[in-house]
Simulated assay, not measured.
Amino acid sequence: MLFAHDTECGLLAAAALVNTATPGREGLPDVAALDEFFTAHGWTGRHEHTEAELREVRALRPRLRRLWHAGIDELVEIINALLRESHALPQLIRHDAEPYHLHAVPRGAPLATRMAVEAAMAMADLVRADELSRLRTCDHPDCDNVLVDLSRNRSRRFCDAGCGNRAAVTAYRARRAAAHG
């Protein structure tokens, strides 16, 4: 583990949330999809299962995407704004058989607020560790998904949407075509 467990979870959840908004495909088309996302990423606490909550979460995505493309000064501004707007007050918490970790807003805060703060806290850890190079976009030419490279050797190039497999197949076919002239 390179970072604290909650930092890694926050980074991966933020990337996954950003990647639900891709051109031509809505990854959170309805409340049921948000419910699945909530469960898949281990969110706990308040979850209203409403269209209003879904709209708030969707509205957060462009702001989080900006974290992957901003320079350091803008990145810090975004992080600080997310924390300030949410009235974040970090505290050590233990729940659901998890070890102590940081929560900066109450579990009863709106889901979009908790998502924003978790992402901001995780990004703050990257800034403090001077590890922003771990924030990347997928190398596949037809993909604009974001990713967090948590590998030890910093070698991750593709997102989780199958782009690595597509790139390998394309390279294989090109080698085969070249070999068969």
Rank of each mutant, 00 (worst) to 15 (best):
A179E: 09
H103G: 00
D149W: 02
T113R: 07
L28T: 04
F38Y: 15
N80H: 05
R173W: 03
A112P: 03
A171E: 12
T39M: 11
E36S: 15
D125G: 05
W43C: 12
R25Y: 12
P106S: 13
S155M: 02
P110L: 06
V105G: 01
L17Q: 06
G164R: 05
E74C: 03
V148N: 00
H101V: 04
T7C: 03
H101P: 01
L34Y: 00
A174E: 11
P23R: 10
Y172V: 08
S86Q: 10
G164P: 01
L60G: 02
A174C: 06
R46A: 13
W43M: 08
H103Q: 08
I93S: 07
A129E: 11
V146T: 02
E26T: 10
C163T: 07
A40D: 04
D149H: 03
D73F: 14
H69V: 15
H95M: 12
N165I: 13
A171W: 13
A70G: 04
R173F: 02
A13H: 06
D144Q: 14
H41Y: 15
D6A: 07
L2H: 14
V146E: 01
S86P: 09
L28G: 04
N165G: 12
F3S: 06
R55E: 11
R58S: 11
R63C: 07
L102E: 13
R157V: 02
L82G: 03
N145F: 10
T137E: 09
W68A: 01
L89R: 15
I72H: 15
G27C: 03
L92Y: 14
D142F: 05
A4I: 01
T170F: 13
A119H: 09
R114N: 00
R65L: 09
W68E: 01
A21W: 10
L82K: 07
H103F: 02
E36C: 13
